[in-house]
Design a protein around this nucleic acid. Structure first.
Length: 537
RNA sequence: GCCCCUGUAGCUCAGCGGAUAGAGCGGCUGCCUUCUAAGCAGCGGGUCGCAGGUUCGAGUCCUGCCGGGGGCGCCA
């Protein structure tokens, strides 16, 4: 909570006590006013507290204002009552000038950083697409979302570990290798096999005598890793499902489940009685042939993550895995873990449009559009911001033609252009030998233009935006904030020259620092999104 | 049938229970003799899917309906 908010809330609380309001409201709401003509901040306490005290909201608000006027809170220039009983505070511009100082003192590394996590170790698993072919564009959403979420968690004091679960075991993997082998031998692709062009391309690459299973594994992971790298996404761990067969981790998980007394054998298969855990049906752990299911593997995998010392697991899945959520949580619970320590973020799916048509994604049919292809074409920044500007809870339509051809008016350039303009100001200042004096020597009260104050208002919101984005797992909130900050900077840039004719030395100094604070804000915001902040465009 | 997400401007989307619902794109119109016009400004555009409910106050919360997407495999 910004300091100013606490100051106002505390003053309001004092006035409520002095007026004998009892019981006090549980919290004192103080919000930024969306009515600038009425004030900078406002509180609706009077509306909430009036009923309990039997007074009219406006009367109570008037009394609060009168009381607070005896000892006005810091920064407050004027208090008034408006509407149904809002207490409005108009502040001296000094509170915004102090925001500037806070931003500069915090710097790119410290401003809007928090300690919400107290160093808690969080394992974030994302993408985890089947290693049976290249990533398709839609997977880019999980990659970029997961990575941005990790960056935000890190800034909020969590120890973050990025992880990719490689489902390199099971039916699909076998089909993939068999498809490659068949293509290499010039035989038809097996029924239910993978038909994409990449199968033919990779088969041609595969050396004679290579074990298709081993080679396919290595080839596909190199491809997936490369695509993610080009998007700026790097994982700490690529966790192999197959390795758990070899290490005995799957057997160990099964043994633990058996110890829970919830395991049955029937119809030739081994089941977990998830109905006893509140689900609609039981789930198979070992298939009739004795093969572990994906479900058992995933339980073992999450057990492993806990064993490695993570106290919070975040999985980012596409909504098409919705059906797996309840049973995995139940499975984790059966092992004695608190299911709430496993948090599953379901992202809504991406629809790809090309030439006005929906492109149906199917690795087996081979009709998908590769992520790597798109990133090559538009670059990581455009790809990232396009994914990140939208809430993960809404279905996203990724129009390839629009993203590619209109890339010149993509929001990413709008934001980056603001950063480039800042760099340009610094360059020109250097050329003209305009120094920037130490902040404590500069009179920030020169900053009075609405454009300047709006810019500072946005900068002052960043800490809350970051904390909120972290708590709600919503990186898009940072993305929309960055876009707004850039917009306000462009307005400032247009109306308020930093140097030149008609600008006093004092204004130049104050504005140079305002520009520096904006640079920090942009760098922090873009950094959290993994979008570059170029010095020239 | 049950579960999850969603419905806001022509389009794509924002919008901690607060006052007169915003942005970008598209359309029309202005602004480059000072730091990058990839910019700024103005105009036009809305029964926030529908109906109830809770509340001093609902785009926001609850219920029901309608529309869209996804899920309910011994696939992963």
């Amino acid at each position: 909570m910004p300091m100013i908010q606490e100051i106002l809330a505390s003053s309001l609380r004092g006035a409520l006590v002095a007026l004998g309001v009892d019981p006090l409201p549980a919290s004192i709401p103080v919000e930024r006013s969306n009515r600038p003509e009425l004030g900078d901040w406002s509180s609706s306490v009077a509306l909430a507290a009036a009923k309990a005290t039997g007074r009219k909201p406006r009367e109570l608000a008037d009394e609060l204002v009168a009381r607070m006027a005896l000892d006005p809170p810091a920064y407050v220039a004027e208090m008034s009552v408006a509407g149904p009983g809002f207490v409005n505070f108009r502040l001296h511009d000094r509170w915004l000038h102090d925001v500037l100082t806070e931003v500069v003192e915090g710097g790119v590394d410290g401003y809007a950083a928090h300690d919400l996590g107290h160093g808690e170790r969080v394992n974030v698993e994302f993408v985890s697409a089947n290693p049976t072919g290249p990533l398709h564009v839609g997977a880019g959403r999980w990659a970029v979302y997961g990575d941005a979420l990790c960056r935000i968690l890190e800034r909020c004091g969590y120890g973050v570990h990025r992880e990719y679960y490689v489902n390199d075991r099971g039916v699909q993997m076998g089909l993939f290798a068999a498809s490659l082998a068949a293509a290499k031998a010039g035989e038809p692709i097996p029924e239910d096999g993978y038909q994409g062009q990449y199968i033919l391309d990779w088969a041609a690459e595969m050396p004679d005598g290579a074990d298709p299973v081993v080679w396919a594994h290595q080839r596909v992971l190199a491809d997936i890793g490369g695509a993610l790298s080009s998007l700026g996404v790097e994982f700490d761990t690529w966790f192999s499902e197959q390795s758990m067969v070899e290490s005995g981790a799957i057997d160990a998980a099964l043994a633990d489940l058996r110890a829970s007394g919830l395991v049955d054998k029937r119809d030739g298969a081994t089941w977990l009685r998830t109905t006893d855990l509140g689900l609609d049906k039981d789930e198979v752990l070992l298939k009739t042939g004795g093969e572990p299911t994906y479900f058992l593997g995933d339980i073992a995998y999450h057990r492993d993550k806990f064993t490695r010392g993570f106290t919070r697991l975040v999985d980012v899945w596409g909504a098409d895995h919705h059906g797996h959520v309840a049973r995995l949580k139940a499975g984790v619970g059966a092992l004695g873990h608190d299911p709430d320590e496993l948090e599953i973020v379901l992202g809504q799916l991406v629809t790809i449009m090309k030439a006005g048509q929906v492109v149906r994604m199917g690795k087996r049919s081979g009709t998908f559009v590769e992520l790597a292809e798109v990133v090559d074409e538009v670059g990581p920044d455009v790809a990232r911001l396009t994914f990140l500007l939208q809430s993960i809870d809404t279905r996203q339509t990724f129009d390839l033609d629009a993203v590619v051809s209109k890339s010149m008016d993509n929001p990413v350039f709008y934001v980056q252009y603001a950063h480039a303009r800042i760099a340009s100001i610094a360059k020109v200042a250097a050329e003209r030998n305009v120094p920037r004096y130490p902040l404590e020597m500069v009179d920030l009260s020169e900053l009075v233009h609405p454009r300047e104050l709006d810019l500072l208002r946005s900068l002052g919101e960043l800490p809350e935006v970051v904390a909120d984005a972290c708590r709600t797992r919503a990186p898009h909130k940072v993305a929309t904030w960055v876009r707004e900050l850039a917009g306000r900077f462009h307005g400032f840039y247009h109306d308020c020259y930093v140097m030149g004719e008609g600008v006093t030395h004092e204004q130049t100094q104050a504005r140079l620092w305002l520009v520096e604070a904006t640079r920090i804000g942009l760098a922090v915001g873009l950094g959290l999104l993994g979008v570059s902040a170029p010095d020239s465009m």
